[in-house]
Structure formats: C-alpha cells, structure tokens
C-alpha cells in the first residue's frame, strides 16, 4: 500500500513543487493551501508524513503545531516555513515530535533525504 502525505502550504509554488516531489516518490498525497480545506476524513487518516507551514490565519505557530499533532494522526511532521528564524525554530523543536524544520529557502534534496 502506498504511503500517504499531507502538505499544507499557503504558497502555491511551494505547494505544487512539494506535491510533485512527494508524488514522484510514489506517495498518495493531499495538498491544500489552507486549514479550512481539511475535511473530517483527513482526521481519520494516519499520514506517513505531514509537511506544513506554521503561518496560518487565526492560530499562532506554536498552538498550530500542537493542534496538528493532537488532531491529525501522523508518523512524522516536517515544518517548512518562511518564518524560520533561529528563535522560532528552537521554540517549535522544543515542543517535540517535529521531525524536521526547514526555513525557506531550503534544499529539497534534504527534505527527500528525510523522506527516505
């Protein structure tokens, strides 16, 4: 059975490239731009990987990561964001259970390494 991935990125270019990268690795992938595009079924899935931004309307970055971990079942979580300052990165990683943190611009090869 194919692995599953969920990508949540507001930036359309980044979203599309990440989606193609994931599809090229034989994953089943759901790519969305905003949180309100998530449906009930997504919450029942156990995603192999979630790749997400942390900047979304109505929820702070730390709260978002916490909620994501609580509500959507997954095996690993990668954060890719333009707000990737050292301080932000440290705070997100301190929360635990975040497999990787990439600040834009980033090397896609490193993300692929993490996937494999």
């Amino acid at each position: 059975m194919a692995k599953t991935a969920l990508i949540i990125q507001q930036d359309l270019i980044l979203l599309q490239v990440l989606e193609r990268m994931i599809l090229a690795r034989q994953y089943r992938c759901k790519a969305i731009r905003a949180l309100d595009q998530l449906d009930i079924e997504d919450q029942d899935q156990n995603f192999d990987i979630i790749i997400s931004d942390i900047l979304f309307d109505g929820i702070g970055p730390l709260d978002y990561v916490y909620q994501l971990k609580e509500i959507i079942r997954h095996k690993s979580l990668l954060i890719i964001t333009s707000m990737g300052q050292k301080k932000v990165r440290q705070e997100i990683l301190e929360m635990g259970q975040v497999s990787g943190f990439f600040s834009v611009p980033f090397n896609f090869d490193h993300v692929e390494e993490m996937l494999s």
């Binding site: 979304f56 309307d57 929820i59 702070g60 709260d63």
Partner: peptide, 11 residues
C-alpha cells in the same frame, strides 16, 4: 487573546 496570539511576527 487567541486571535492576538496568532499574529504573524517572529519577535
């Protein structure tokens, strides 16, 4: 407060 906490700014 939840809404104010979600304001996007790194510092």
């Amino acid at each position: 407060v939840k809404s104010l906490l979600s304001i996007q700014y790194p510092f």
